[in-house]
Each structure stands twice: as C-alpha cells, then as structure tokens.
Design a protein around this nucleic acid. Structure first.
Lengths: 231, 231
DNA sequence: AGGCATTCGTGCGCGCGTTCACAAAGTCCG
DNA sequence: CGGACTTTGTGAACGCGCGCACGAATGCCT
C-alpha cells in the first residue's frame, strides 16, 4: 500500500481551513473519538462536506470509503502539511498593550509557537517581565533570532514603528511576519506577510450593520430563533 | 459634482479593502495632500490599480479623469458606505489577557468603536478598571447593550466559554460579533460573525515556512505514527 | 458470498473576483 | 482654441474556488 505524498500545490483557501480542521480533530481526540466522516467534520467546521473532502484530498487519499477518516492519523497529516510537527518559536516586536497580551496569550505556545522573546525600542519597557518572558531591547533582535532559530516575527508596534520593525526582522533573518499594525508593510521578495487588522474587522461589521439599518427597520428587537450558520 | 448613491451590491472582497483605502486617505489628509490617483492609492495599499478603480466605482463615479480622486471627499464616501459616519459602541466579553488588551487598545475608540463595556463571568475580575473602563459582570450585558445601544460584540473568552458568550450577546440584541476564540460559533440567522484566530494565522505562516524548507531535509526528527494496522 | 448501505474522491459547471485593455472625459500648454 | 497627455470607468476574458453529483471503494448484514 503506497502512502503517497502528493506534491500538488495546495490552494490558499484550503491552507486557511486546514488549521480549523486540525483543531476539531484535536478536540475529537480528547473526546476519544477515533473516526470522523467528512460530513461530521464539515458540520463542526461550519463548511460544506464536499469542500472538506476536496481539501483533505490535497493531502492524499487518507480516508476510508464507507467509514471516514481516522482522527489521529488525519491530524498528523495536517500537522505535517502545515509544518506543525515541530515548534516554531516566534519573536514579538512591541511590548505595548497588544504585544503584552500576545505574549501572555497561552494559545501561542500551546499550539506550537513558543514566544522566544519580546523586544521593544523603548528602554523604559526593557527589563519588565511579561508572562515569564523578559522584555529585551530591540537591538538584541539579531541575537534572539539567531540563537533561538526564529523564523516568524510578530509586529505589535504602533503604526509609525511597524515598517522599521519589519525591516529589523527581515534583516535579522526572519522569513515570515504576522503584522498587527494597521499599515501595509514593504518587505523583500520571498518574505511572507500576513496582516491582522482589528479595526478593519470592526469596520466590515459596521458595513453590515449599516446595510441592516438602510434596507429596513428590522434592525432592533427582531431575533430569529433559527439556528443556522451565518457568514 | 454629481452625488449619486451606490447602485450595486458591493462585493465582499471590496468591502474588506475599503477600510485599507480609508486609512491611507486619512494619512494623506494629515499630510495635506488633496488629490490622489488610483495608481498612487494602489501603490500605498499594495494592490492593483485597476482593482482600486473598480472598488471605488462601486461607490459611484467620484473620480475626475485626468486628475484622480479628491482625498477628503473620497474618504467621506467610503465612511458613508462603511457606516462610519457615526460611532459604533462595542462590548467586550471576557476580561482576560486578550480582552484587557483590546479594551486598552486605543485603535478601537480612535476609529469609531468606543468600548461601551467589558464584562466577565468571573466575579473576581468584576470591578477592576481597564483603560478607564470598569469590568462588569456578564449578567449586566443586557443593560449595557440596551442603554448604550450596542450592536457589535467582541468575544474574547476562552474557547469553552465562547458559545455561551455568543448566545448571551445575541439574546441581548447584538447583531454583529467579532470572535477571537478559536471555535466555530453557532448563531441565529441574520447575525454577522467575523472570526479572528491568531493561532491560525501563525499556522498558515508555518505552512509557508515548511514549504520554504523544501522537500529535502525536513524529515529529520519526524516520527510517522503509521496508519492504524497497515504496513 | 452477495447485496446493500455508507462514505470517499473527483470531474464538471458555475459564479465571483481579478486583471487587461481601451474608450471617454477631463486637464494642461502653447 | 486645439491637440497631446493623463487618468478614470468599465466591458470582457481569464482563473480560481465552490458545490453538485456520481462512480468507486469499503464495511455490514443476511
């Protein structure tokens, strides 16, 4: 029985969903459920069953027809594809409100992204300890990245300092950046950047609210007891 | 100058980009630049110029051929479309690490989303003050939502409490939810939900890093659990 | 062993979003 | 005032991802 490792290019959209599947599979493992169908997984993930099957088919043919997917095995395959078979230490630039929260947010280390360090350009912040991690000066960035083999940097600075933070990160050798600052970062070719803009998310919701108001007057007080997934 | 209302339904993808344009326009205003071309805007936003023009065309014909767009006027039009002509107070559920950071994150109130309240189910957290906002008990949610006319709720609880938080929010009358908990929320029809999963973002970056490593040498230290009884 | 029920894997059509390319419309300058 | 130049607005082609529907494979029951 050949266990194929299809080097097909996995679509962006699928990659974005794999972590969701993985989390669900881990939950199922905790509940000692050994097998799950594409239908069950789809329901828990809030997506279409066919989409689940197509997504998983990019990893290989790891399901059993008439049965479903073996939870533990599928979880391993997703981990392998996402590169989660080992930890990825991250360094956080910016020890402000957000940086502190991210450093203290247990979800990171728990999911394989231990905080290798927190740095800030403000000397008054250096030395304080956040969630067991001492804040260091940004000049130590190179050393942290090299000694801890950090590939991923998190930009949690004010907007005005974000580009500088990104520059320092790339110079230090970081190849992926998660940017929380509301600016468009310019980075060298080959560097991956993902942006999370909290205000933008709220503004999108605001747009929906605006439409709700405009079309009719049902905005206030009308609650549909129906339990459907909504976008 | 003809002021026409938007004619078509604006695509989701465009709505997601409008806030980015808006932020750039505000920056341009601060630098006292009165006019900008689709090319200039595209460069600053990191997207294609044609995309900018098409996006803006959904708002109406607000550009001047041969010149560009009037910054202040265009900013107003985007604000109007996004419903940002007035504030949208938000209520944050969960006063843990993330909830505190969000409450203290100035970017929210600054961009038209003042924090109307922070609530938590843990009595030991109630009463403490975060960034000038006193944490109240979750039972006060209904009152906060009604007296402050809150339409948008933020879920910043641990995963296990997220669904309950969402239920309470929708019961209180909130119609849009920004969910930071790594779970798929079930909500009544008509409720808008957007999810921000910090770990997922890192996992996507991890995937890119994994690919960067190449097929060659990442096998070191990987243990394949095998596949059930096979092999 | 054979038939039936279940579920995976995927080919195919469709709709949305992106991009190109160009006409229309306006500005600038001699 | 007219022609050259600039930039917008949009029709059209393209590509991608979604979801349906169905064949294929597997387990179960008699």
């Amino acid at each position: 029985m050949p266990i194929e490792r299809p080097r097909r290019r996995i679509p962006e959209a699928t990659v974005a969903r794999l972590p969701v599947y993985l989390r669900i599979l881990i939950e199922q493992t905790n509940e000692e459920i050994e097998s799950i169908s594409s239908d069950g997984l789809a329901e828990l993930a809030g997506v279409n069953a066919a989409k689940v099957r197509k997504d998983l088919s990019y990893l290989g043919s790891y399901g059993t027809r008439g049965v479903g997917y073996e939870v533990a095995f599928l979880a391993y395959q997703i981990r392998r594809e996402l590169g989660l078979t080992h930890d990825w230490p991250v360094v956080i630039v910016g020890a402000g409100n957000l940086g502190q929260a991210l450093a203290g947010y247990g979800g990171f280390g728990q999911r394989g992204f231990p905080v290798a360090g927190v740095v800030d350009i403000d000397p008054s912040k250096v030395g304080s300890v956040i969630a067991g991690v001492r804040v260091r000066h940004i000049d130590d960035l190179d050393q942290i990245v090299q000694t801890r083999q950090v590939n991923i940097g998190v930009v949690a600075t004010p907007p005005s300092a974000a580009q500088d933070a990104a520059d320092r990160l790339t110079r230090a050798g970081v190849t992926s950046i998660l940017n929380f600052a509301p600016v468009v970062l310019a980075v060298p070719n080959g560097i991956s950047v993902r942006k999370v803009d909290l205000a933008v998310e709220l503004q999108i919701l605001s747009c929906y609210e605006q439409r709700r108001m405009g079309v009719g007057l049902q905005a206030i007080g009308l609650r549909d007891p129906g339990r459907g997934a909504s976008a």
